[in-house]
Amino acid sequence: MKSFFGLVFIIIAGFLVNKYVLSSKAYDGVTKVTDIISSYPINVYDFKKTMADYAYHLCYKNESVLSNHNISISECVDNHDQRKQDCDKKVFRLAPLNLETKEDALDYSRQYTQCTLPYKYILG
């Protein structure tokens, strides 16, 4: 019985550390993906990695909104993971190797987020 409660405590602690420490570290207070980009041009491969991390951030940041629509954070993250590869191909297939302007970054960011997280009420 003690080991069961210990295991439950460890699982809950791990979830809380992931949610409140690890997942939000890079994006504290960020409203747009372009807020974390400091210089242009942006290498499109680095931008793809940033967008994947940002999609996770959006799932965690909008927990209350998602739960109001009966979508859990894990469902949001799973949806991103399932759609990521197809959306990478769809959104970035004709992208240049470097994004030259903030407007380009915002446009690709919007397209990627809408493709991988098709929730019209998620804020980012």
Rank of each mutant, 00 (worst) to 15 (best):
R110A: 13
D46Y: 11
G124Y: 04
M1K: 14
S64G: 15
V91N: 00
T101H: 03
K102Q: 12
F5W: 10
V44G: 01
I36H: 07
T113M: 11
F9H: 07
K61I: 04
Y60I: 06
V91L: 02
I37W: 03
C76L: 03
R83V: 04
V44F: 03
G124N: 05
S24T: 11
Q114Y: 08
R93F: 11
A26V: 11
S72D: 12
L16A: 14
D104R: 08
L58D: 00
H57C: 06
K2N: 11
L106F: 06
A26E: 15
Q82M: 10
V91W: 00
Q85Y: 12
A95D: 01
Q85P: 05
G29T: 02
G14D: 02
F5T: 06
P41D: 02
Y54E: 02
L123A: 15
D81N: 12
S67A: 15
S24I: 08
M1T: 12
D78K: 09
S74W: 05
R93T: 10
Y40A: 07
D107G: 13
G124T: 04
N70Y: 14
N70A: 15
E75C: 05
G14P: 01
T34P: 00
S72K: 09
D35A: 14
S24E: 13
F15S: 14
F15R: 12
N79D: 13
A26S: 15
T34K: 02
K48I: 03
K25L: 10
L22A: 10
L16C: 12
Y108Q: 01
L123N: 15
I12E: 08
L22G: 09
